[in-house]
Design a binder for these strands. Structure first.
Lengths: 155, 155
DNA sequence: TAAGATTGAGTTCTCAATCTTC
DNA sequence: GAAGATTGAGAACTCAATCTTA
């Protein structure tokens, strides 16, 4: 039953299927080559790009793309693996900072390099340069922080 | 560390983040309104659009966007819920057909209607009509069955 | 009382091993 | 032996309840 809703539905299906297919290739690769899941990789990336290289449990939870709960235990396991450590939050003994260890930073760099190659192989060559540009522009709002602006009248 | 890899990386990030954010809104909604997860919804959709309204366990497994294993138990639970039933495959006593029940078909129609409204709210209005068209064209290959054609020189 | 994080209990996922049929 | 599906065992996810501090 194709196209009942028009182009916006096809656009969504494209976005959804592209992600699904590519992650199904990327996840096993990540586990084999880098010894971590995409969830861990995502967490490391959030910490890497956070202001002081650290975030609270709840901030990690909110920003994670792949889980909706259980960040405490994810951090437990990553801590046991030596990728992050917990630190006290000065002035608030309820909270916890999750901080990248040197090992965590190193492993993230490695994993990112591997992962980029997979995405290049599975995604990049399937689109033209012009398509890269237009898709990036259309979907930029979803990863650029903030509640997203309303569209006016683009091309 | 933005844009190290160029537009194709931004395009991928857009696709990934769009999916993540939208599914995080769509999944709880699906559970509340339709009483099923996106995994079940996906399975129902595959069966609905399959040639004879039926697929084998392994075919479902391969086409599922959200799981990489365990289709036997997913079908177990969907069967217990009355949405599908197992049928023998004539001439191959190893295999099993998974078939939509009337109830399954009805529930899928309902869920699709609810789900479409969520996608409309979370996705449609954030893009212009022109962006819908260009994203749909660029990513069509990922959901149109087949190994995808190579890009030549599109606009 | 609320915020932040952890814990308990049940469900689901995942990989490997098994069972049946080809 | 290989294909198709199921099962076992352990890990991970999810929601609600709990504990500590603000």
């Amino acid at each position: 039953v194709p196209n009942e809703n028009g182009d916006w539905w096809d656009a969504w299906r494209g976005v959804l299927f592209a992600t699904g297919k590519i992650l199904q290739a990327a996840e096993p690769q990540m586990i084999r080559e880098s010894g971590m899941t995409l969830v861990w990789f995502d967490v490391l990336g959030r910490l890497e790009s956070a202001p002081a290289g650290r975030l609270r449990i709840q901030e990690l939870q909110e920003r994670s793309l792949f889980t909706r709960s259980g960040m405490t235990r994810i951090v437990d396991r990553m801590e046991a693996a030596g990728l992050v450590r917990r630190e006290a939050v000065p002035g608030d003994r309820r909270g916890v900072y999750v901080v990248l260890t040197d090992e965590g930073r190193r492993r993230h760099v490695e994993a990112l390099a591997d992962h980029s190659r997979v995405i290049e192989r599975e995604f990049r060559w399937r689109l033209t340069p012009a398509q890269h540009t237009s898709v990036a522009a259309a979907l930029y709002q979803f990863w650029h922080d903030g509640p997203a602006a309303s569209p006016s009248s683009d091309t």
